[in-house]
Design a protein around this nucleic acid. Sequence first.
DNA 1: GCCAACTCACTATATAGATAGATAGTTTAT
DNA 2: ATAAACTATCTATCTATATAGTGAGTTGGC
Lengths: 194, 194
Amino acid sequence: MSLRWALIALLTGRPMTGYDISKSFSTSVAHVWHAPDSQIYPELNRMERDGLLNSVEVPWGKKGTKKEYHVTDEGLAEFREWMESPLVPQRQRDPAYLKAAYFDFADPAAVREQLRQQQVYWEEHLAMLERTRASLVDRSHPTLAARLEKLDEREAELAVRCKVYAYDGLISRARTELAWIEDGFTLVDELHSC
Amino acid sequence: MSLRWALIALLTGRPMTGYDISKSFSTSVAHVWHAPDSQIYPELNRMERDGLLNSVEVPWGKKGTKKEYHVTDEGLAEFREWMESPLVPQRQRDPAYLKAAYFDFADPAAVREQLRQQQVYWEEHLAMLERTRASLVDRSHPTLAARLEKLDEREAELAVRCKVYAYDGLISRARTELAWIEDGFTLVDELHSC
DNA sequence: GCCAACTCACTATATAGATAGATAGTTTAT
DNA sequence: ATAAACTATCTATCTATATAGTGAGTTGGC
């Protein structure tokens, strides 16, 4: 259900087509909420049906058209309502922790290999988050830049700070994962040696 | 799909009925993998059909019977195979970070209220994790204790260390969330004052 | 003797999400 | 000229998960 709010969030920045959205998802909102285009297109249709968005047909090339979605007042109102409604606490459901609890069932070499893979994944993820954070701070991030055009300096500063705050959270989460993975290597060494 | 492996993991400790499982889920595996009984019962049936488990009818009272599930050799083999297969990296999908990125859309008082609620939730969650960790270290945790009975001291030590390692990860994750929430309060104060 | 609380197992329904593919137009490099 | 790559939108199918219920047996307290 948060997909709906992720889409509105993105569209408050500037009107976009489904295709635009599925592209910018991968470089912005996807860091907090991933979705494939097969979820995005139907959801946009439902949101238009529910009056949260309206769409404008825009010509594309000679024969083609594309649909540009705009957030309606009702859409914005419902987004604010969601923003101010309490968060339902997330259930824990992470295969990495499930596996870790039963590392004694697996071959130490296989565990080490998995830890290495996880380490690579989280290091790359962290690097990406830090690059994105930097592009938010210097306002070069395209999605953010489009949003800021409509705002005065004070509002822009607030928007940037919130985005940076979210990324700071993701960054410290990634660092915590990496530290835990480091401890995993130590654990396997100990298991093996005793 | 990890539900299947969470169930086998639990059943390697001791044979259990679906009801036993849905109860002990909430005090052990649920910290890493939550599932309601309406998912557990059908999955146990499927796992029996697939030969990962077999069930023994056990009398219960005068007329009643209950089904006790045992892990088969095939089940254990497939569990080990999963344990040694690479983890598919999880997509980020967390409403808390999505909201945080758009705090500037919400009323500061509403944001503070949500941060407080999150803080309470994570503090309670952290306290529960620390209690559970302690009960693993002193081996008083019932699910763990049942498992350890079958093991020699060296194996038991390994099993305990792995569980503690998993909980240490969950605990540092919870602490990271709490630190981020603290920063959230600071952010809202700043937004409000400028 | 009876009610409440618990044990046990399952079903029904709806939504969310993952994966894959269908279809049609456009742009660009060779 | 044409193939490759990209833009655009949508469908089909399957699995996962959540929520809510059904129904039958058991145990313990008063």
